[in-house]
């Protein structure tokens, strides 16, 4: 019976620790960061002898928004298309395996190497310069396998007989996918895109050499560099004590975004029956 008791202790301790970590990180950041958050912090540019001592993070918020949205568009559309292709169109397992191998390989590329790629190929070889588009391309490649896997999983969970019923009525694949499959998983797709967006928003490495900068205004086009929240946080931390307050504030904003997005994604991801 000792075995049983030890296992039980292990289980409760593990669960407690995991929840403890989650709660600790969020409470810590929210408690420490709350003091820095006010309208000025959210709506003004960083200032001060050491950047970030005064002012706010408005350009970084807008920059992150630009990076993330561009990445979700660039990565999300091919991800959904690939998932539909694998599940509904591809008829040969061998071809499916090739696609899977490539996706697997891409998912294995560390994000820093993707940043490297975007820098060498887009910024330098194609000479589009350091800009949002270059970073977002790297982010898009990073989140594409992530979104694809989620969408593919939800497509596979559609009851097979429902699809067969549509085929059996003489309706084509295109019509079936468009009118049955995609509406059926619409919420899961939204959820996958939100989580993919979170993933992109929090990633720093792909921005370092490509389109993320320490200071700039609010970006007007995708062809100029911009500030981003995670990069800003990294630089504030690297500067040390003078800008620590702003660092807590920046972390606060990011954690709030994560919390809200995750709540939304969970809400959407839950299978809800059509009423």
């Amino acid at each position: 019976m000792l075995k049983a008791r030890l296992t039980k202790m292990w289980a409760y301790a593990g669960m407690g620790l995991v929840l403890g970590i989650v709660i600790f990180i969020f409470i810590y950041i929210f408690a420490k960061g709350a003091g820095s958050i006010d309208l000025e912090f959210l709506l003004e540019s960083p200032r001060g002898a050491v950047l970030g001592m005064e002012g706010g993070i408005f350009p970084a918020i807008m920059g992150s928004l630009a990076f993330t949205l561009t990445a979700v568009v660039l990565g999300g559309i091919p991800a959904v298309a690939t998932a539909v292709y694998i599940v509904f169109i591809c008829k040969r397992s061998s071809f499916e395996n090739i696609i899977r191998g490539v996706l697997q390989c891409i998912a294995g590329i560390p994000s820093i190497v993707l940043g490297l790629f975007a820098y060498s190929f887009l910024v330098r070889d194609l000479a589009i310069g350091r800009c949002i588009l270059a970073s977002s391309a790297a982010l898009a490649v990073m989140i594409m396998p992530f979104i694809e896997a989620r969408v593919e999983k939800s497509l596979r969970e559609i009851p097979q007989q429902m699809l067969s019923s549509s085929y059996a009525l003489g309706c084509s694949r295109g019509y079936t996918v468009f009118h049955i499959a995609l509406p059926y998983v619409r919420q899961e797709i939204i959820s996958a895109l939100i989580l993919g967006g979170c993933f992109a928003m929090g990633a720093t490495p792909p921005l370092i050499f490509t389109g993320g900068v320490a200071f700039s205004g609010v970006p007007q086009t995708l062809l100029e560099p911009a500030m981003a929240l995670p990069l800003h946080l990294y630089l504030l931390v690297a500067q040390g004590t003078p800008s620590l307050g702003a660092a807590y504030g920046t972390a606060f904003v990011m954690m709030a975004v994560i919390l809200i997005s995750n709540a939304l994604a969970t809400f959407y991801g839950r299978r809800r029956r059509w009423k």
Partner: peptide, 30 residues
Amino acid sequence: MGKKLNSAFLLIITVLTAMALLVLAFVIFF
């Protein structure tokens, strides 16, 4: 939805997938 729309839809999906794969393969190659 007519036959044309159906094949257009399938074509778009296939082309998008092919493009995505080519880009990803290019990243690896690069």
